[in-house]
Nucleic acid binder design. Structure first.
Length: 884
RNA sequence: GGGCGCGUAGCUCAGUUGGCUAGAGCGCUGCCCUUACAAGGCAGAUGUCGGGGGUUCGAGUCCCUCCGCGCCCACCA
């Protein structure tokens, strides 16, 4: 036994996959294999910016899919010698948590209420203490509400971490962060203050997309269109003569929103529309209210839509905003933030006379829906509604989390510049998109397309509660009114701050809200304004500059395609402003999982497939196998069959390893690997390592898995069978035993050890549990800390002739074929096998003669090149023993 | 309406810069309890590469066009 030889392998009698996850997760935590070594320099580090998942308590199949793919890359990088910085975070700030807190505790936030230290929510889990469903939520102060949110997520996050650990991510859990934590809030506010001081953040009074239900402004990135039923109402506007008196002629427009008639500020038609050209510059009066509005021209008006002329209201849709801005129309807002028509009669209606006022009063305070019905009645009564409304289905803008159409209201909000209103800046961000490496390459189009389509700056203020407060105060003027032009900022050292309770520098708490004092900004930042800073939060920007310098800009940003326009783009914007760089070198975009439930809706008789159930039924490695079989960026149908294959592969790995180790696989001088068949195997292995390495370097984990799996398959089916007898020492002249092992047997055993060792490492990124288990039978330390088998670590002889294995496997295959055809057992003896082939291939076969004879149970093997004709294929004749 | 992607065996998918009779796994069929593995092994059958044109000595691969599917974006009159 040589000095460097490991202890005798400890191979279990019945190897099994059960319980490996718990066992090794605990072991990895204890040994710290995934702990980031912060003495590493930037060039040695591979840092990964995982988008922190929303804490929901549930793990989604899609998350498992994408995160496991990234983990395989992380594990490869670690084995390839990089110091992997792989933090995880929880995105717990924002609306989803607010909603869950509302449902869970049965409360809602009323920011006008004072803090109640003794506040007790009506219940938990949506139920009262006596188990009844909570029907009405109870109001509480903002601070009480935030406390409840934090209580909820703290409990959830413990469970969530356990769940995530189950999928075997090699993250350094000591780096775990939360987007609502003090550090994250401080980072977010620090970045905001930087944006403010450089003029990248600004506040403006402007038309804003507004969600009535949540009572908050929303950003362009959070919109989605949904098809909703509507109806065209044909309305008669009245033309006037030069003196402004009615001329008796009418102009007809079609609108789906007659309730906004009181907010009408103009009619607009295309400049080249001959039907309406004579009207441009003239004035018409609205039906019902008789308010005079101009007829104007704009190329956005579409002649073939409706009657070709549209009414512009402030504001019915985003086109109205465009027209209002570009045509410098007046603002006549009638819809309030509660989604109802203003209760006080607007001045322009009053000016139109008592009839108009009377009409408006029947609408005042009504919801959009009721106002529409009332308006139709008013129009009908006056004969100004032509015909019946024509039902249509049309796209309507919604907040992606909302269930009522968005309204547009004018309000003061905070914005970040993002190029939406500045072609030069837009070009800067477009260029950033081209600098970023994309996997797959075509995903860059989505980024480009989004940047090209931006039509406004990024609205970041939200009228919500559970978020990062906008860290500013405003001066209060002599009349006690906030002066929004006087912005007071905190000292950086004071971050994070809450302006609603903290006092700005230079003021006393008693000056809050009094003339000459200050008032805190009540709004919070959009959740994206914080999650767009995950590289800064994770890498310790402004908090741990040493760590930051070793990890930022990060190497990799893995994520789904649906958040390119939001999360990815926003993160690029923030890093560009704060650091003048990209936040990462490369983005890998995973594909979608096609939901089987959706597909098989008709068959949905129960079984909801959850990742947890799959992980329990098949084991984590099996689920990881399926996830990493999918090509980067490629959509994949959920396939339980693939998961079963993964499980089989893992079991196969256990059994094949057990066999190899029990056959005497042993570490000896690789120079003892002398048999041509063994050298052929290792030559092939060398190619596989090269292919897998190349694939991983291109972030194509799936290809790396594919070539490794194919090799392992051949290794088991062909090589193991061929070498079995020789490894056992069946043909040894000497008595079995180390000291007297023949060179042929020693060669086989050394080859088994080398091959198994390499195969375990090659599979380690994909099947971390089973490879670690087998590794522990005979190797010290963790396979995940082992060196990737390439380059300098390739210490086996590779000058072999691959043909030896190929020909031997082909002949063995023919022998099996013959036995299969004869319907006899594989251990049946074969009388003769005659192989006719080229001299080269015959020589190769000759080199493996004894192994083929052993594996095929062959009595006589005839190898002949004399009758071989050039270009004709290998000819193999198998004659079974007549006795059988 | 614009953009991106996809359409290869019954199913899920590979097919790298155009190159030897188009591949894998599942499923299917048959056989084998072989002492690593019967929740296994071995073997077998299966394709107008969505349709139609074109370039080429040669096209699943490149070009054009049509059909179908998915996703994203788009101004809700």
């Amino acid at each position: 036994m040589s000095a460097d030889r490991a202890e005798a392998p400890q191979v279990p009698e019945k190897p099994s996959l059960e319980g490996l996850e718990t066992k090794w997760d605990a072991a990895w935590t204890a040994s710290g294999v995934y702990t980031f070594d912060r003495s590493a320099t930037r060039d040695q580090v591979f840092s990964i910016d995982t988008p922190p998942p929303t804490v929901s308590g549930n793990l989604h199949m899609g998350s498992v899919f994408g995160y496991v793919q990234t983990d395989a890359v992380a594990r490869y990088q670690r084995m390839a010698g990089r110091d992997v910085f792989y933090p995880m975070g929880w995105d717990d700030n924002g609306l989803p948590t607010e909603r869950r807190a509302q449902n869970y505790f049965g409360v809602h936030c009323d920011p006008t209420l004072p803090y109640d230290p003794d506040f007790t929510p009506p219940g938990t889990e949506g139920k009262t203490p006596d188990g009844k469903k909570i029907k009405r939520t109870e109001p509480c102060s903002r601070r009480n509400f935030v406390e409840l949110c934090i209580e909820l997520i703290t409990a959830d996050e413990v469970v969530f971490e356990e769940t995530w650990r189950r999928i075997g991510l090699s993250v350094d859990w000591s780096l775990l962060y939360q987007t609502i934590s003090d550090d994250a809030r401080a980072t977010s506010q620090r970045a905001f203050l930087g944006n403010l001081s450089r003029g990248e953040a600004y506040q403006a009074e402007a038309p804003t997309l507004w969600d009535v239900t949540f009572a908050t402004a929303v950003a362009q990135a959070e919109l989605e269109d949904r098809d909703r039923p509507g109806a065209y109402h044909r309305l008669a506007f009245h033309r006037t003569d030069a003196s402004g008196a009615p001329s008796g002629d009418d102009v007809f427009i079609e609108t789906t929103r007659p309730e906004l008639l009181a907010a009408c500020v103009a009619l607009v038609a295309h400049p080249e529309d001959e039907r309406y050209a004579p009207l441009f510059g003239s004035t018409v009066t609205t039906p019902v209210f008789g308010v005079a509005v101009p007829v104007v021209a704009h190329e956005l008006a579409e002649p073939d839509k409706g009657s070709g002329i549209a009414m512009v209201c402030t504001f019915g849709d985003t086109t109205d905003v465009t027209w209002w801005r570009e045509l410098e129309l007046p603002t006549r807002a009638i819809i309030g933030r509660n989604g109802r028509l203003r209760t006080e009669t607007p001045g322009w209606i009053t000016a139109a006379g008592p009839d108009a006022v009377a009409a408006y009063e029947t609408l005042a305070g009504k919801t959009v829906f009721s106002a529409k019905e009332q308006m139709v009645e008013l129009l009908g009564a006056r004969g100004e509604l032509v015909g019946e409304p024509k039902p249509i289905s049309h796209p309507v803008k919604f907040y992606e989390k909302g269930d009522k159409p968005l309204e547009i209201v004018t309000s003061r909000q905070w914005y970040f510049r993002n190029g939406g209103r500045d072609p030069e800046l837009r070009e800067v961000f477009a260029r950033r998109g081209t600098e970023l490496a994309w996997v797959p390459e075509h995903m860059r189009h989505r980024y480009q397309h989004w940047v090209d389509g931006l039509n406004g700056d990024w609205l970041v203020s939200r009228q919500r509660f559970f978020g990062v407060p906008i860290p500013v105060w405003y001066g209060v003027d002599d009349d006690g009114e906030p002066d929004h032009d006087t912005v007071i900022t905190p000292d950086e050292s004071a971050l994070p701050v809450d302006p609603s309770s903290d006092t700005p520098p230079g003021f006393e708490a008693s000056q809050r809200g009094v003339p000459g004092g200050f008032i805190g900004e009540a709004d919070v930042l959009d959740t994206w304004a914080t999650s767009s800073l995950t590289p800064q939060i994770a890498c310790g920007w402004g908090r741990d500059d040493d760590l930051f310098s070793r990890t930022f800009p990060m190497d990799l940003r893995p994520q789904g395609p649906e958040i390119i326009r939001t999360w990815l783009f926003d993160t690029v914007v923030r890093a560009h402003f704060a650091h003048g760089t990209l936040p990462w070198k490369r983005a890998t975009i995973n594909g979608w999982i096609l939901d089987p439930d959706r597909k098989k809706m008709s068959k949905s008789m129960g079984n909801v497939v959850t990742p947890i159930a799959l992980l329990e039924n098949y084991g984590t490695d099996a689920v990881r196998y399926w996830s990493t079989s999918a090509r980067p960026g490629t959509d994949t149908a959920f396939d339980e069959g693939q998961i079963k294959i993964g499980r089989r592969l893992a079991i196969k790995l256990l059994n094949a390893s057990r066999f190899a180790l029990n056959s005497g696989a042993t570490d000896v001088d690789p120079a003892l690997i002398t048999e041509p068949l063994d050298r052929a195997l290792l030559t092939r292995l060398d190619d596989v390592v090269a292919m897998a390495t190349r694939a991983f370097d291109a972030f194509d984990y799936a290809r790396a898995l594919e070539v490794t799996e194919a090799f392992f398959w051949d290794f088991c089916n062909d090589y193991l069978e061929l070498v079995k007898g020789r490894a056992y020492g069946n043909r040894d002249d000497a008595v079995a035993g180390d000291a007297t092992t023949s060179p042929a047997t020693a060669s086989a055993r050394a080859t088994l050890a080398v091959a198994l060792d390499a195969v375990l490492r090659l599979f380690a990124p994909f099947l971390p549990f089973v490879t670690e288990e087998v590794w522990s039978w005979w190797r010290p330390g963790s396979v995940h800390a082992a060196t990737w088998p390439s380059g300098e670590s390739t210490s086996w002889p590779t000058a072999g002739d691959d043909t030896v294995l190929t020909v031997a496997a082909t002949v063995l295959g023919e022998i099996r074929h013959a036995k299969s055809d004869a319907k006899v057992s594989m251990k049946t003896a074969v009388a003769t096998v005659k192989v006719t082939d080229s001299p080269e291939r015959c020589a190769a076969l000759e080199a493996a003669r004894n192994d083929v004879i052993d594996a095929g149970v062959v009595t006589e093997l005839v190898i002949d090149s004399a009758e071989h004709r050039a270009d004709s294929p290998t000819a193999i004749e198998v004659t079974l023993d007549p006795v059988t």
